[in-house]
């Protein structure tokens, strides 16, 4: 029983971070229908911001989180203006954005590799290797803190989307872009803001990831499959769905890792993506795809 609770706690603690990693991807897809394959590479960019701030100046990665988020949000604005704005009215928008984000992922990986090499890195504040003990059960402080911070950020995002004027505009644009425009929403501005928030969330997730996982530029290929499975299970564009899916898959992966084998833990996400696409492509909270 103790082992069951232990594994459950580890799964839940990682679920929060994975939810934050996926929420930006989900938001960007929801508003702009961009499947941002470069999202994990931008998370890794955020992780490097936190890593170097810690290594050079000893700044705690959680303290560095808002800075990483702002830097990445700024990069998001530039990327949107340069890469996606012109494509917004293209008849081949969906295909083009997949190709563009794939190219972007390769470019970001190449740039990060050129500057920082492919050496595995991990930020190591004291709490990253410490734990709380409750009898036989331990809770790693790093994962716990990262999970709590992730949930606070996702909660703040949910409140922003629910109650702010821009949040209304983002939700409306997600659900019916033409209708939002007819009611006076500047959908171009909403797209820029949502993209910046989405990429800013990647930066924030990167700061937390930097002390939870080891990372290097090519790690993105492992994470894109993990994040796609989370976003697809939740329902593309649904942030609530992303959170539920992240916790579910993280817990399942933790049990698989313990009882079946560590290699199979990552496979849980890949297998889930495959199965979901076969039996319920709209995911838990998404809309059914239209028939051709």
């Amino acid at each position: 029983m103790a082992q069951f609770i232990q594994v459950l706690i580890l799964g839940l603690a990682l679920g929060g971070v994975i939810a934050l990693m996926g929420s930006g991807l989900s938001l960007v897809f929801g508003v702009m229908r961009i499947v941002n394959l470069a999202h994990p590479s931008l998370i890794i960019a955020g992780a490097y911001v936190a890593y170097w701030a810690f290594k050079l100046w000893g700044i705690d990665p959680i303290v560095m989180l808002p800075v990483a988020a702002l830097i990445l949000a700024g990069i998001g604005v530039l990327l949107y203006r340069l890469m996606f704005e012109k494509e917004a009215k293209s008849a081949r928008y969906s295909e083009m954005t997949v190709l563009l984000t794939f190219a972007l992922a390769m470019m970001v990986e190449g740039l990060l590799g050129a500057f920082f090499t492919n050496t595995q890195r991990v930020t190591s504040p004291d709490y990253a290797t410490d734990a709380f003990f409750l009898g036989d059960i331990f809770i790693p402080k790093g994962q716990l803190y990262a999970g709590i911070v992730s949930l606070v950020i996702i909660g703040a995002l949910a409140l922003f989307l629910k109650y702010s004027r821009m949040g209304y505009a983002i939700r409306a644009t997600t659900q019916n872009r033409d209708a939002a425009e007819l009611l006076g929403v500047n959908v171009n501005l909403v797209s820029v803001v949502a993209f910046a928030i989405g990429i800013g969330l990647a930066g924030a997730a990167g700061a937390l990831v930097s002390f939870v996982f080891s990372f290097f530029p090519a790690k993105q290929w492992e994470w894109i499959a993990m994040l796609m499975s989370v976003v697809v299970l939740g329902g593309m564009g649904s942030i609530l769905g992303t959170v539920v899916a992240a916790f579910s898959l993280s817990v399942i992966a933790a049990f698989v890792g313990t009882w079946v084998g560590a290699t199979w833990s990552t496979m849980t996400f890949f297998l889930a993506l495959f199965v979901i696409l076969l039996i319920r492509p709209e995911g838990l909270f998404g809309e059914k795809p239209e028939m051709a």
Partner: peptide
């Protein structure tokens, strides 16, 4: 418009 332009969710 014809499709009423509501936000279903």
């Amino acid at each position: 418009p014809q499709e009423r332009a509501l936000f279903p969710k």
